[in-house]
Nucleic acid binder design. Structure first.
Lengths: 192, 192
DNA sequence: CTAAACATGTAAAGCGTTACATGATTCG
DNA sequence: CGAATCATGTAACGCTTTACATGTTTAG
């Protein structure tokens, strides 16, 4: 059910077609909520049916068509209501830490490979988040710039600070994972 | 598909009934892979059908019955093969950081409540992981003790070190979340 | 005898993944 | 004219959640 809020977050800045949305999605909110296009298109239809969006049918060339989605008042309300609901922190489902929980059963070679891959994965993520932060600060982040253009100038500094803060959360998490996995590698060095 | 490996992890230490498994599950591997009983019972049946488990039908009293599940050789192999597969790190789906990504749009009051709840949630988790670590080190953790009893004495120190290491990963993550959310609260103090 | 614990599921609905399927337009 | 990009979906399958459903045994 979070998918629709992720979509609303992008659309509230301005109307987008399913295709544009999908492209922007994967390089912004997709960082924290993955969804393939085959999930996005039907969800947009459902949101339209639920009155959160209004679709404006456009033509492109002679036979081309596209649907520009606009957020309705009800959609804007749904987005802001979402912030007031307490978040549910129930179901954990973490393949990496599931595996880590039984590392003592694995061959040292397999354990090492797992931890190496974990370090690689999170190093890559950390670099990605760092470059997102750089892009936000330097005014080169397309989705953030769209958002900033839609709010009064006086509020932009605050908005940038919070966007950076959000990515810092991902950075710190990645850093914690790297530190932990590196300690695991040292454990393997010591205990085999 | 990870559920079956979580179940195998518990069963490989010794046979258990669905009920016992479900109880042990929620206080051990359930910390990293949530599953309700309504998912566990059918999955055990499927694993039996796939040859990973063998069910021993027992009676309890006059009309009571239960099924004790034993890991087959094929099941043991499946568990150890699982460690050799590279882990897939694709789909992220993180409600808390999704919300955090749009914190600038929220009312300061709602943002504060969200961050407070985040701190509370992860403080509670951190305490839980710390007490798990204490229980492991003091020999009071039931599932870990079962596991230790099944391996040679010489390997037990190593196994304990790795179990502690696994929980430390959860601890560090919780700590990172707390630090981050507290910085967010200070941001709110400064910027409103 | 009653409550708690033991014991095992089914059903429906929703969410998510993967594969498939199709066609138009624009740029070089 | 061919490739890249624009554009929008459907279908089948599997996983997960929530709610429902039922009965036995044991301890006090």
């Amino acid at each position: 059910m979070s998918l629709r809020y992720a979509l609303l977050a992008l659309l509230r800045v301005g109307p987008l077609s399913g295709y544009e949305l999908q492209k922007l999605f994967s390089e912004s909110v997709g960082h924290v909520w993955h969804a393939p296009d085959s999930q996005i298109y039907p969800e947009l239809r459902r949101m339209e049916a639920d009155g959160l969006l209004l679709a404006e049918e456009q033509t492109r060339g002679v036979h081309g068509r596209r649907r520009m989605y606009h957020v309705t008042e009800e959609g804007a309300r749904a987005f802001s209501d979402w912030f007031d609901e307490p978040l549910e922190y129930s179901r954990v489902r973490d393949p990496a830490h599931l595996r880590a929980a039984y590392l003592e059963s694995a061959e040292p070679r397999a354990a090492r490979e797992f931890l190496d891959a974990h370090v690689r994965q999170h190093t890559e993520l950390r670099n990605r988040w760092q470059s997102e932060i750089d892009r936000i600060r330097s005014g080169a982040h397309p989705m953030v710039e769209r958002r900033l253009a839609a709010i009064p100038e006086a509020e932009r500094g605050r908005a940038v600070a919070f966007k950076v803060f959000a990515y810092e959360g991902l950075m710190e998490r990645a850093t914690a994972e790297i530190r932990w996995a590196e300690r695991g590698l040292r454990l393997l060095d010591d205990l085999g």
